[in-house]
């Protein structure tokens, strides 16, 4: 019963700050080196068996967050509980054991596979690291087994990554993540580098594997259609913070944060071109080196007032599990326009 009520992953007040190195010039002039608050005080949970979609534009900190959750990047503050264990407090050895249970699939199928290793070595590596295979032949059997699950086969074992297409390489990356039978996978833009028809193949594969192997995903993407299609819940990130989070059907049908509304309306719609009202965003993303004070979205927000420039908004629950951080939540009337568009979600 506990496994049903306890979330598999619980992230509490997680922050990640990158500090610049203090140079001699800094020391002489007394200027502080730069620091980037890539992830700022983020909390969320992922329930067992669900897909939490994390969406945001480049530079918003979504990949950093995904890696900080696995401690691939050491968090600066906050805790990550995995199945009740505080991952941030684990020793290096204990963390290694824990990693068997939590894995990652990377965006770039070209950069994430060692060009000098064969498929057998790449996919078999987690077995060696965790001592999960007693013999070479057993290892080979397991590798072939997982390759067949992802749509490859034994004939591919001795080939090198450059002999595969982008879609096939992503299948190799997925096989490597799954071979240690993990429970939790961070999918970091796994389909963004792929052509449309191949993207659909990989999405379908990830969904099938999730059901078959009982997986839980944190699915990171900048593509709201992909996130909307496969997520149970959605978190929207802007400049290191989650501005809106809730059940996918609710957030995407009735987005309440002006940033989510503008994201939804910016996506070109193949079925109903031009039928939706544009919530226009002016300007570019501010530099994360020097984020705006108050609500970080106020420089681009069509609804911003003076109050937004001074105080950061506190997340408020608008319906069960649907939280929004916006000062203008109750004055925001664009809801109805976007609601009509995403009917049927």
């Amino acid at each position: 019963m506990t496994s049903l009520t306890n979330p598999l992953v619980q992230v509490e007040n997680l922050s990640k700050v990158y500090e610049g190195r203090r140079s001699l010039a800094n020391r002489l002039t007394g200027v502080e080196p730069f620091s980037v608050r890539a992830v700022n005080d983020v909390s969320f949970h992922v329930d067992r068996g669900e897909i939490l979609g994390l969406i945001g534009e480049s530079g918003c900190g979504k990949s950093t967050l995904g890696r900080a959750v696995l401690r691939l990047h050491e968090p600066t503050a906050g805790r990550v509980l995995f199945d009740g264990t505080d991952v941030t407090a684990l020793s290096a050895g204990a963390l290694k054991d824990m990693r068997r249970r939590m894995q990652i699939v990377f965006q770039d199928p070209y950069a994430s596979l060692n060009p000098r290793s064969t498929v057998a070595d790449i996919v078999g590596l987690p077995l060696r690291l965790h001592g999960l295979a007693a013999s070479r032949s057993e290892m080979r059997d397991q590798v072939v087994g997982i390759l067949e699950k992802v749509g490859l086969n034994a004939a591919h074992l001795d080939r090198y990554p450059h002999q595969f297409s982008g879609g096939q390489r992503q299948r190799i990356g997925i096989a490597r993540a799954l071979i240690s039978h993990p429970e939790f996978i961070v999918c970091d833009e796994p389909v963004s580098a792929l052509d449309v028809s191949i993207q659909a193949q990989i999405i379908q594969l990830l969904l099938e594997l999730k059901d078959e192997m009982g997986l839980t995903y944190l699915f990171i993407s900048h593509d709201i259609s992909v996130i909307g299609y496969l997520s149970n819940r959605v978190a929207v990130m802007y400049l290191g913070e989650i501005v809106e989070m809730g059940p996918a059907s609710d957030v995407l049908a009735r987005p309440r944060h002006p940033y989510t509304q503008s994201l939804m309306s910016a996506v070109p719609d193949v079925d109903a071109p031009g039928h939706h009202q544009r919530v226009r965003l002016t300007g570019d993303l501010p530099s994360p080196l020097d984020p705006p004070p108050g609500c970080k979205f106020h420089t681009r927000c069509p609804l911003a007032t003076d109050a937004c420039k001074h105080a950061a908004p506190v997340p408020e629950e608008v319906s069960p599990g649907h939280r929004v951080a916006c000062h203008r939540l109750h004055e925001n009337l664009s809801v109805l326009e976007t609601a009509s568009r995403a009917e049927g979600c």
Binding site: Q201, V226, E343, G344
Partner: peptide, 15 residues
């Protein structure tokens, strides 16, 4: 092949 918000829960049919 295009994932759509309105197709949640239905399988997409890749080429």
């Amino acid at each position: 092949s295009i994932p759509r918000l309105s197709m949640r829960g239905q399988p997409i049919r890749p080429i």
